[in-house]
Design a protein around this nucleic acid. Structure first.
Ligand SMILES: [Mn+2]
Ligand SMILES: [Mn+2]
Ligand SMILES: [Mn+2]
Ligand SMILES: [Mn+2]
Lengths: 213, 213
DNA sequence: GTAAAATTTTAGATTAATCTAAATTATGAA
DNA sequence: TTCATAATTTAGATTAATCTAAAATTTTAC
């Protein structure tokens, strides 16, 4: 695994996370996500292909190497988040931005020893699975809140974003991983839901929030 | 404290470490140390001065802010080295290059919590003092091996470089911090010395090695 | 099946960080 | 003091990563 610049690494992670079921995405989607100009993305796509990180010159599909690089970055990111919460007593909403930097530290030895010390964690503080050394991810049968059936009991296993503003909102509402919940009401016209948490507390969520569950 | 690029941070650290008793150094010394062309250094010196990190436009003297930045980088570097050895079981010769990357991670919260977890270490794994939050360093009365008196007993407190090749050499010779030693012979013509370690083992050191003690 | 709209690419510029080669400035030994 | 050598700066180029504006291409809508 070569030592790519953090700019290149961030492009690869972004492309990975935006890929649809066919494994592809678009210049404009990447530009939007990175808040970069499409012209800049177009230029970078050419360079990523030259580095062998993209399958195709014109289509935005990760090559085998690109895919592995993405998964290894996600592995490092989630291991560091786990470390920060478990060892340095950070809160779950504090760790993402720091892990965005730490994931670019290049050291095979460090990447090997961090999970040993943490005793091979399988999930990060946001309930997201940590890819193994080879980049494999477990098959999760998690259901997004927007697809939950009314009155069916679920367990809160993960959040779909670990941005601090969203997590702070969950904290304010008293939501935590591991809680049991069910949807008691579902508004079709605006996608909002009413939840019963731990069988004793009611919370209302807008569709925007529900989508990140 | 603004968020400088790691290139700028590395220049500031280099200038700091090269400064003489008058607090100054030269373009050519920095170029030599960083293995850069003097023209590149000259160009960077102008930019560092524009950023307020150098006292003077033409003389290579750190400003108050430049000096503090350097000390805070050294603090982070040595805290990370301590963390790697104490927590992740790294050996003292393995940590410098990783700390060179970790010291550029910018997070006031992390810089605050790392020393709390480590219980405010005063020295790094190489015996080098860790500056406090404000950048203050303790006054050490350490004596370099080259200035040691013959037959006087000393304790091995620190090394002057933490590059892995030098530390591997010390490992091979069985040298460790905390050991007692005295110079039993000193060759004036080549600066080499003969040491008695822990009163039972003899080692010969060239002047090159002695200078890094 | 065209035409408008959206998307992508190209062209040209900019900034940080580097280089080589040339010009300038400083040092210092005779 | 003077002139050779050393140190530094300037000039011009290069590469990565970005931008804006314009051109080209693809998609969608009628
Ligand atoms: Mn994260
Ligand atoms: Mn996470
Ligand atoms: Mn070090
Ligand atoms: Mn050290």
């Amino acid at each position: 695994m070569k030592n790519e610049s953090s700019t290149v690494e961030n492009y690869i992670k972004t492309i990975y996370s935006l890929c649809d079921k066919n494994g592809k995405t678009t210049v404009s989607a990447v530009a939007e996500r990175l808040q970069n100009n499409p012209a800049s993305v177009s230029n970078m796509v050419r360079r990523l292909h030259e580095k062998g990180l993209l399958e195709n010159k014109s289509k935005l599909i990760l090559s085998k190497e690109g895919n592995l690089l993405a998964r290894q970055l996600i592995r490092k990111h989630r291991l560091w988040e786990t470390f920060l919460v478990r060892v340095l007593n950070f809160k779950w909403e504090e760790v993402h931005d720091i892990a965005e930097q730490l994931e670019h530290v290049h050291s095979p030895l460090l990447t090997e020893r961090l999970p040993v010390f943490l005793e091979y964690p399988k999930f990060d503080p946001h309930g997201d699975p940590i890819p193994d050394k080879k980049g494999n991810l477990p098959d999760l049968n998690a259901i997004p809140l927007t697809e939950a059936e009314v009155d069916q009991l679920y367990i809160f296993r993960s959040v779909a974003t670990d941005k601090s503003d969203f997590l702070n909102y969950l904290n304010k509402k008293g939501l935590q991983l591991g809680q049991k919940w069910k949807v008691t009401e579902k508004e079709e016209f605006d996608g909002s839901v009413k939840l019963l948490i731990d069988e004793n507390r009611e919370v209302y969520f807008s569709e925007t929030v529900a989508q990140n569950f």
